[in-house]
Computed example of a mutant assay.
Amino acid sequence: MRKLSLFILLLLSSYTISLADFPVGANEKGEHLKYVIHYGIIRGGKASLKIKNEKLNGEDIYHATLTGKTVGLFNTLYKVRDTYESFINPKTLLPVKAIRDIREGSYKRYNEIKFDREKNELTSQRSGVHKVPEGIHDILSAFYFARANHFNSDLVEGEIVKIQTYFSDELFLLQFRFMGYETINSKIGNIKCYKFIPIVETGRAFKDEDDMKIWVSADANRIPVRVQFDLFIGSLRCDLMNFSDFSSNSLLNKE
């Protein structure tokens, strides 16, 4: 249950990286996306991501901070308070540092990872130094990299995007298949979206490889609009509820 809740919360939340136009001059102060998670008709959790320009050791970086938590009945049954951070080089879109702070029920874990691009190594606070493939990502930066480089009109239906990541102190190959276009009736209106199916491990939580689906707006913003999971225990859905930019505090929708 612990690993499942982490995987679900991370994927549906980390896919919310939304600074689609940062490299080409979008709002330089950053943006904020908020999502609500439902299990059937029951509201089970919230996810939020803020991303903005900062400095780390005197260098410009993009700082993405993801938080996810359970609410209501789910919070009583199994309390989750998860935070992920990624510090991303704005030129290469590769992470220089990542933080994972997990609180799920009685389980707690904190880890920091620093990346050495010259040596193709990373240093985990928990497990030490590891040799890794060139261009390795943390899982949060991987979605931003995918959004910036793969979510466009060049996508061919059936194409599989693969990105090598380091997650939970091990190598993890992130893969998702483009399934074409679909219009989603969302909280902020009808939105034409790219539809993706991540390739997941079957047997433990998912019955089939296509039991998880992600819809990303097929426009310049490329904002994740919906994530849906069909699990052994039922269907879980995450929907975009709120968007704002830090410069104007304008909202597409208020909760």
Score class of each variant (00 low, 15 high):
residue 229 F to P: 03
residue 187 K to P: 00
residue 229 F to N: 12
residue 35 Y to R: 04
residue 124 S to K: 07
residue 186 S to F: 03
residue 162 K to A: 12
residue 173 L to S: 11
residue 143 F to K: 02
residue 113 I to N: 02
residue 246 F to N: 14
residue 37 I to P: 06
residue 235 S to T: 15
residue 148 A to G: 01
residue 81 R to Y: 07
residue 235 S to P: 09
residue 36 V to D: 15
residue 142 A to I: 01
residue 200 V to S: 00
residue 102 I to N: 00
residue 45 G to F: 04
residue 160 I to F: 06
residue 248 S to L: 09
residue 106 S to K: 14
residue 31 E to A: 12
residue 9 L to T: 11
residue 150 H to G: 00
residue 113 I to T: 12
residue 57 N to G: 10
residue 106 S to M: 06
residue 69 K to N: 15
residue 79 K to C: 13
residue 249 N to L: 11
residue 25 G to N: 02
residue 232 F to A: 01
residue 2 R to D: 12
residue 138 D to I: 03
residue 39 Y to P: 07
residue 88 I to F: 01
residue 141 S to W: 01
residue 44 G to Y: 02
residue 128 G to E: 03
residue 46 K to W: 10
residue 242 N to S: 15
residue 254 K to C: 10
residue 64 A to W: 04
residue 234 G to R: 06
residue 155 L to K: 01
residue 154 D to R: 10
residue 69 K to V: 14
residue 92 T to Y: 00
residue 12 L to C: 12
residue 79 K to Q: 13
residue 87 F to D: 06
residue 4 L to D: 13
residue 156 V to G: 00
residue 177 R to W: 05
residue 79 K to R: 14
residue 207 K to Q: 15
residue 63 H to R: 11
residue 194 Y to E: 01
residue 178 F to K: 06
residue 56 L to R: 10
residue 54 E to Q: 10
residue 183 T to D: 09
residue 6 L to K: 11
residue 36 V to A: 14
residue 78 Y to K: 04
residue 83 T to I: 08
residue 124 S to Q: 08
residue 84 Y to V: 02
